[in-house]
Amino acid sequence: MKIKQIEVFAINLPLIKPFVISYATYPNMPSIIVKLTTECGLIGWGESVPDDHVTGETPEATFAVIKNTLAPILIGQNPMQFEKIHELMDAAVKDVPAAKAAIDIACFDVVGKKLSVPVYQLIGGRYHEKFPVTHVLSIDEPEKMADEAEQCVELGYSSFKMKVGRDVAGDVKRIKAVRNRVGDEIAIRVDVNQGWKNSANTLQALRQLESIGLDWLEQPVVADDIDAMVEIKLKTATPVMIDEGIRNVRDMREIIAKRAADKVNIKLMKCGGIYPAMKLANMAEMAGIECQIGSMVESSIGSAAGFHVAFSKKIITSVELTGPLKFSKDVGDLKESYMIPYIQLNELPGLGVDVNERILAELTQYSEVVQ
C-alpha cells in the first residue's frame, strides 16, 4: 500500500458559543484537514489544529508546510511504516508538531481501514470501555460560569474543567463560585493556560483554594518554567498537571527527572500525532505519572484520534476531548458517540468517523491537492 495523493483543506469550524481562555477568544476554530488517498483507493483522514501559543504554528503556516514540505515527500510511501513516516517528516522540517499530527492521524486511519480494525487495535488494543466526559467552562464572570456549571450538572455531567488565567483574584472568585453552586461531590479541574505566569502568583491563589478540593491544577506558569512547577508541586497538596510544558520526549525526560508534575496532559497536536503520543504515554507509565489526553478543540477527526490513544492505555485516566460538542457544524459524526456523562467508541475500522464531504466543502476556505 502506497500513498498516491494528499489533499489539504483549510476550514473554519463554527462554535456554538465563543471559546474563551487566558490568552485568546475564539469565535470559531481554524483547522487543517488532510485527506490521504492510497493507490488501492482507500482514504485516511487527518487533522491539524495549531496554536501559536502552544505548538508555535499558525493555520496558514501549517497549511503551507503540509502542502509544500510534508505531503510531497510522502507520496509513494507506505502509510503502514509509522516510524519511517515520522523519520521522513522530522528530516524535512524541525518541530511543527500539529502539521505532522495531521499526516500521522491520516496514516493510522487508512491503515486501520486496510486491516479492517479500529485504530486502538494498532496501538495495543482496547483497555477502557468508556470514559467520563468533562465539560469545559470558558472564562466568564463568576456567576455566569456557575450558572453554566449548574445547568450541566442537571444534564448529567459530574466533572468540570474550568478555564481561568486572566487575574488571580478574579480567578479565585470564579472557582469558588462554581464550587459553591455545584457542591462538593462534583470534580473540578482548573486550567490556567499559563495565565498566572510564575510560582509566586500560583501559590498565592492556591492558599485561597486549598479547601476547595480541586482534582488538579493545570499549567499555571509559563510553559518552559519546569522549575516553577517543581516548586509548586513541593508546596501544595493540590495535584498539578503539566500541559503546554510537555510537547516531546525531551520535555518528558526533564519532567520525570525533576518530578515536576503529578499528571501530564498529552495532546496529539503538541507532540506530532498518535505515534509520538504513545511514546510519551509509555514514558509516563514507566515513571508512574498519570496521563490525560487533552484537546485543542478538534473536529470529530482529531478528537477521535485522541480517543483511540486514550482508550488503549491504562495509564491514561482522563480525557477532555469535547470539540464535537462545541461545534454547530462538524465535518464528522463523532458527536453520536457522546452519551453524557460518558463517551464510548464504536468498533468501526480506522478512526471510526464518517466524514461528510459536503460539509467539508461548505466550511473550506481554500484547498490544495498534492500528487
Rank of each mutant, 00 (worst) to 15 (best):
S159K: 08
L155Y: 05
E150R: 07
Q208P: 03
V111E: 12
L122Q: 03
Q204W: 06
L115C: 10
F131D: 10
Q204A: 15
V168W: 01
G156C: 02
G195C: 06
K163Y: 04
P118C: 05
H128M: 10
R181H: 03
F108N: 07
H128C: 11
S138Q: 09
I188E: 10
E210D: 14
I186Q: 01
D171W: 00
D184A: 01
V133F: 01
A149H: 00
Q121S: 15
I212A: 09
R174L: 06
F160A: 01
D191H: 07
E210F: 11
R179C: 02
T134L: 06
Q194I: 08
Y120R: 09
G170A: 01
K161L: 13
V110L: 02
L203M: 14
E210G: 07
Y120D: 05
H128G: 10
S211K: 12
R189G: 10
K144F: 13
A200Q: 12
S116T: 10
E150M: 05
E148I: 14
A177Y: 03
P132S: 06
K197N: 07
S211G: 08
A205W: 00
T202E: 10
R181N: 01
Q151A: 12
E185K: 13
E143L: 14
G112C: 07
K113L: 02
I123V: 13
L122M: 15
H128I: 08
E154R: 15
K197D: 11
N180G: 09
S211I: 08
P142I: 08
K114M: 11
Q194W: 06
Q194D: 09
S211L: 06
E129A: 14
V110Y: 00
V172N: 08
Y157N: 14
Q121N: 12
F108K: 07
D109M: 02
A177S: 14
C152K: 15
V178K: 02
L137W: 01
F108P: 02
A149N: 03
Y127D: 10
D147Q: 15
L115F: 10
R207D: 14
F108E: 02
E129S: 15
V133D: 00
S138E: 07
L137D: 00
N180H: 13
D109N: 01
Y157M: 09
K173G: 11
D147M: 09
F131R: 05
A205K: 03
R189K: 13
K130R: 14
V117M: 03
V153Y: 00
Q204T: 15
E150T: 06
V153F: 01
H135S: 15
D167T: 12
P132F: 08
M162A: 11
V182S: 00
V178G: 02
D147Y: 05
H135C: 10
M145E: 04
D167E: 12
G195Y: 12
D191I: 04
V178I: 04
K114C: 04
R126T: 08
E148P: 07
G156M: 04
R207V: 02
V136G: 00
K114S: 15
I175G: 01
R126D: 12
D191T: 12
N201C: 06
R174D: 06
Q208F: 04
A169S: 13
N180M: 09
D184Y: 02
V178Y: 01
D167R: 12
Q121P: 07
S138P: 06
D184W: 02
Q151K: 15
D191Q: 12
T202C: 11
D191L: 10
F108A: 11
A177R: 04
L122N: 05
N193K: 13
A146D: 07
V178C: 03
